[in-house]
Design a binder for these strands. Structure first.
Length: 813
DNA sequence: TTGAGTAGCATTTTT
DNA sequence: TGCTACTCAA
């Protein structure tokens, strides 16, 4: 039979390739079993990926429903979908574009009944997992073996990422070691508690999907038949479980496993539906941007791709369309220090651009003040706030930055960090929803049992739990039978009241809108009422947060008119930090370097470039730690389009007391001529004297990676050796120098003083005195009431923005 | 059982 | 510094 394909529209096809360089072009049009696109930072990979998908559809090589594209965040997924739709219009419907986790939830919900779960399973986020682990540690007195919640959570997570379950883990376990025996027991309990609660944790979502596919080839075959083109972004950050999932999906299904099967449209499959070859796989990644090894990401997945897929093709994208040459040169020279990598050099035709700006503050407040001043200046030069970002290594660093940003009245937003959904009151409200959606979940129930206060304390809870355990029933069922426990009449009534509310509201879960369910729960339990009546001033804010949650549920329904409570809970569980980014908001974004991956900004401030912070102390003991930290630094640098700032502080307050910080070794890996030091470490160090070359003069003093490499001798299970290398002596010397100095030298130039000025009003031309900046003249006043902002030209400290209400200032006569 | 008060401890990065 | 976990009185 002759098959005459419908010819693709040549105009459209050329539009898909328009503006692409030859390598990008090939990445779009290549057809074959396996394709690896090695995409350097800013090399236009998203564009290539979206056009490749559009091209597959446009050339009739694939139906939209045959495409599965995996991204790192939901935001990236949404963006990709949008871009594909813009390229080819409506036809994009039916594609699966999502994160690993969302895709797996979708599969698991559909297939839950096949392997002993119900489709109303809940997803435990890390806080939930930790709460459970904490209880298990307590039960088993495992802390006597030195187990902490994070250690146990880490080990369990690692095992799951390696696709180990309790059985396979204990097969290799050394039971002669009592600590290991205890760990296995904890692992066992953790797993069985999850199963009993009809819940999956993050790692389960992937691992259980792989188990499902392996144990039920007929189920797997359905998906193998459906997805003919699998595309994976950020491949360098995939772990073993995710890798296995991809392998399962791209296997050729056996015809007998498809026999009699029913397709996704509910129609029986036909003979010719059996595919002739495995699905084609496209992965995109850059091993220089692998920063998730701590989470089990295995860089070998990308490095050994060609060996894994013998018929594969590799395409390199090295031209950068994002950054200036100065920024790229800095990035190239830093990453070149990682041995064991394929040499790759980013280049651009944009031109050199501005130099990188360096600044050394006396304290983290000083550093933050510099950033705030620069942000204000950049804004004046026409760069929008939303085009600026501040990066840091640890979340704790936000404090000083937020402090100064607030006082300077600069609009900012912290991405990630203490998230909305991690607030206690939100977790409580969510626990109500979970308890209603998944009655088998005792964790949620326990959380809300006494919120708001009902007089159900630990003793009562234990009694209920006992009753439940006695005849193998759930905690929820025990609640209904509280009358038989011989508790006080008050408590009994409270318990029964709660049970009634949950049961009655529970009848509506499949039909009612999430907002209505939440409203009913809040109303009937008096949750909001109690918060509002409280004397604690913070409770007012908590009540507002809960109302915000209510608004979120309404918003959800607006976007998903048929979305059930379960859909809402799923969506909430899987939001990533980067998903919070709102492109339309005119605020500066503050985020960790990890969150920054995949994003780009016109101006980037990379803060805390200090030894011990970047690279982080904790990384020194881990194999490959310093190299991964360097990649993190590299990722940060390459986010910037035009302006890059590197800053550090001489001293940093850590839990109350102040420690002396040394410039990061990575700073020396950047050619000096690329950095314009507004205040170099040397200048900051030597009583204001000008010594811009001081950083280089100390070469070797604190930059020696040799000291770190030596640590690998410790071997597995070894403890991190107290550093005795050159780095340590330099640190000690610096500390000694600091101690000799009069204290005032080291106190920060910018304090965190806040004052309530009531309704002090300032006018242009007023002279003021500021605690930190000295005297100055008001040059502008904007805003009204408590939000009014003064712009002040200080005599020596330069120009600053000040939120009048809280600044430590006084008006001079 | 609750709430106030205090002692002790902790910070790496996250789907 | 800021939070949690524990103790003790009501």
């Amino acid at each position: 039979m002759t098959f005459i394909p419908e010819l693709p529209d040549p105009a459209l096809e050329s539009r898909l390739l328009e503006g692409l360089n030859p390598q990008q072009r090939e990445a779009v049009v290549y057809r074959g079993e396996a394709l690896l696109i090695v995409a350097g930072a800013g090399s236009g990979k998203t564009s290539v990926l979206t056009r490749r998908i559009a091209h597959l559809i446009e050339t009739r090589d694939a139906w939209p429903s045959q495409i599965l594209a995996i991204t790192f965040t939901n935001k990236a997924a949404a963006e990709m979908r949008e871009r594909v739709e813009t390229l080819i219009g409506q036809a994009a419907e039916g594609m699966w574009i999502s994160t690993f986790h969302s895709a797996c939830v979708r599969i698991l919900r559909r297939e839950a009944e096949t392997f002993g779960y119900t489709k109303s399973f809940t997803i435990y986020d890390s806080a939930d997992s930790r709460a459970l682990i904490k209880r298990i540690i307590k039960d088993l007195d495992a802390d006597t073996f030195g187990f902490t919640v994070s250690k146990v959570a880490g080990r369990i997570s690692k095992a799951k990422n390696e696709l180990q379950d309790v059985e396979s883990y204990s097969r290799d376990a050394n039971f002669a070691d009592p600590a290991e025996a205890v760990f296995v027991e904890m692992f066992r309990r953790y797993s069985s508690e999850l199963t009993r609660a009809n819940a999956f944790d993050f790692d389960d979502l992937i691992a259980q999907t792989v188990y499902l596919f392996r144990a039920f080839p007929k189920v797997a075959a359905l998906y193998q038949r459906r997805f003919r083109h699998v595309l994976v972004d950020e491949y360098q950050d995939t772990n073993h479980a995710q890798y296995s999932l991809i392998r399962e999906l791209t296997r050729l299904p056996k015809p007998e496993h498809l026999k009699g099967a029913v397709g996704f449209d509910g129609m029986p499959l036909k003979e010719y539906d059996t595919p002739l070859g495995p699905a084609s796989l496209t992965v995109v990644g850059d091993s220089d941007q692998s920063i998730y090894a701590f989470r089990g990401a295995d860089i070998r997945n990308i490095v050994e791709f060609e060996r894994d897929f013998p018929n594969s093709k590799v395409i390199l994208l090295e031209q950068n369309y994002r950054s200036t040459q100065n920024i790229l040169s800095a990035a190239n020279s830093v990453i070149a220090n990682n041995f064991d990598r394929k040499d790759k050099k980013l280049f651009t035709t944009i031109g050199d651009g501005e130099k990188i700006v360096g600044f050394t503050g006396y304290s983290q407040h000083d550093e933050a003040q510099f950033i705030a001043d620069e942000v204000a200046e950049l804004r004046e030069s026409g760069i929008d706030y939303r085009e600026m970002a501040v990066f840091y290594r640890t979340n704790a660093q936000t404090r000083a930055l937020e402090d100064v940003f607030i006082r300077s009245a600069l609009p900012y937003r912290v991405i990630g960090g203490t998230k909305f959904y991690e607030r206690a009151e939100i977790k409580d409200a969510m626990a109500y929803l979970i308890a209603v959606a998944n009655p088998a979940d005792p964790l949620a129930l326990r959380r809300i049992m006494n919120v708001p206060k009902r007089g159900i304390g630990p003793a009562t809870e234990a009694a209920l739990q006992n009753h439940a355990d006695k005849d193998g029933r759930s905690l929820r069922e025990a609640l209904r039978e509280a009358g038989r426990l011989g508790l006080g009449p008050k408590v009994t009534a409270a318990i029964e009241g709660l049970a009634t509310i949950l049961d009655e509201v529970g009848t509506t879960v499949d039909t009612a809108a999430p907002a209505d369910i939440l409203a009913a729960l809040l109303e009937r339990t008096g949750f909001l009422e109690v918060l509002r009546a409280s004397r604690d001033p913070q409770d007012e804010a908590r009540a507002e947060n809960v109302e915000e949650l209510l608004a979120v549920t309404r918003e959800f329904r607006r976007n998903n008119p048929t979305g059930t409570l379960l859909d809402f809970l799923t969506e909430v569980s899987l939001v990533a930090a980067a998903d919070e980014l709102d492109d339309s908001s005119g605020t500066v974004s503050l985020m960790t370097l990890h969150t920054a991956k995949g994003l780009e900004f016109e101006a980037v401030f990379l803060t805390g470039v200090e030894e011990g912070l970047l690279p982080h102390q904790m990384s020194a003991g881990e194999p490959g730690g310093p190299a991964e930290e360097r990649r993190l630094f590299y990722v940060g640098i390459t986010r910037a389009r035009r302006r890059l700032y590197l800053s550090l502080a001489m001293t940093r307050a850590q839990f109350g007391d102040v420690t002396v910080a040394m410039p990061s070794r990575y700073l020396q890996e950047i050619p000096t001529e690329l950095i314009d030091w507004r205040q170099s470490p040397g200048m900051a160090n030597s009583r204001g004297g000008t010594e811009p070359r001081a950083l280089n003069a100390r070469r070797g003093g604190f930059g020696a990676e040799r000291s770190i490499a030596g640590h690998s001798l410790g071997g597995p299970g070894g403890y991190a050796i107290e550093s005795g290398g050159p780095g340590a002596t330099a640190r000690a010397r610096a500390a000694a120098r600091a101690a000799e100095r009069p204290k005032t030298e080291w106190t920060s130039r910018v304090t965190s003083t806040v004052r309530d000025n009531g309704d002090l009003t300032l006018a242009v031309g007023d002279r003021i005195r500021h605690v930190d900046f000295g005297e100055g003249k008001v040059t502008a006043v904007t805003g009204v009431g408590p939000k009014s902002v003064a712009e002040v030209q200080f005599d020596t400290a330069g120009r600053k923005r000040l939120l009048i209400k809280i600044s430590p200032i006084e008006k001079l006569a």
